[in-house]
Design a binder for these strands. Structure first.
Lengths: 197, 197
DNA sequence: CTCCTTCCATACGCCTCCGTATGGAGGATG
DNA sequence: CATCCTCCATACGGAGGCGTATGGAAGGAG
């Protein structure tokens, strides 16, 4: 919010998309508004409409930027452990924990989920969700489940992730905190990854 | 949407809250707007501001009405089976399936979740969530889990419910349909209710 | 030094929604 | 029949957001 003191040179389109992503995480899609963003950047609409055709162009740019950044993150946290079981646990633990990031990560998820029917959001969200779901499914498959059952578990795990993020955001008082939260997530992962023979 | 032809008598506050709930389910909290609602009801703002102090009063009324209706629903679907296991399964199956109602039920959930930080929404949502969570926890307790573990399972089940609703709404193409969905929910419930000794 | 391109501020018109003021139709009541 | 109370339409002012028009500063090219 307060980072417009240093550079008094010209603004780039990148600055606008960064600010848009920030606003998106903070106040949802509706917060990507030209005039408030201009004020936050210490500029005016004149600057914006030189870099972008209209508000939709900014939204599209922010979404694409997020999708890209998200892909890198997922991929980066993917291949870390040799064994499938630990990889799965590590991944789940990371995403269930990283929800906390008030600005950076999880908030964008929820903001987009909240406006999933928006014409610009829907395709992006569908691509990201499908990619994650496929990856989750592949892990459960490697773990020994059939294609169908692996898909079931993938869907369940992803739904649990989404719902967990929602709960952490909307009613944090009902969710454990600190070490208790850590333990809760452990047991949650245990339930999600247990395979009954 | 199209149900304003019959009665040309005076509008009641109830009509306004009903329309507000409908708009909420359809377009989120932002869709509870006085002038559009007036148009939809075939009236003008003059009518609205006679029955309500302002927009917030209407929102509050709609939320209270939903909370009431929701309580009745939950309670009604509670005590149906004698055995705890089947009661739990029945409850989960019902809520995981009833998400579909495009207007009546699940959409309000998602709309409120999407604007959970709103000053009027937050308290209502917290009460409803806490009540449901407590009930779920009590069922798992009856099933033989300790208080702490029952709470874990309750949280997981509720998170799965929320996430499942989200997925059904935002990316329905990635979720099974028809009989496949029914089977998926069966297996999902199986995973959520299995207790490892 | 001049000109042209880049970048942006100012100012405008438009739309949508909120809330208020005011007056009036129509049934109830004496 | 006159009056009052209920319910609502019309009209207004204001706020905030989008997009456009226009002119001007600032620096590189010639």
């Amino acid at each position: 919010m307060a980072m417009a003191a240093g550079k008094r040179e010209s603004l780039s389109a990148n600055d606008w998309t960064a600010a848009a992503l920030d606003a998106l995480a903070r106040g949802g899609l509706g917060a990507i508004a030209v005039e408030p963003l201009a004020k936050a950047l210490g500029a005016t609409k004149g600057s914006f409409y030189w870099h972008f055709a209209d508000r939709n162009a900014l939204i599209a740019a922010a979404l694409e930027r997020w999708e890209q950044r998200d892909t890198e993150r997922v991929i980066a946290t993917t291949d870390q452990a040799p064994e499938v079981a630990t990889r799965l646990r590590n991944l789940l633990r990371l995403v269930f924990t990283a929800v906390l990031g008030d600005t950076g990560t999880g908030s964008v998820e929820l903001a987009l989920q909240a406006t999933a029917t928006h014409p610009l959001v829907a395709p992006t969200l569908a691509r990201v969700t499908e990619r994650r779901l496929d990856y989750l499914t592949s892990l459960f498959t490697e773990l020994g489940l059939s294609r169908a059952r692996a898909r079931d578990r993938g869907l369940l795990a992803y739904a649990a992730f989404l719902g967990h993020a929602q709960l952490m955001h909307s009613t944090p008082a009902l969710v454990p905190t600190g070490r208790a939260l850590s333990g809760h997530i452990d047991r949650l992962i245990e339930t999600l990854t247990t395979i009954e023979d």
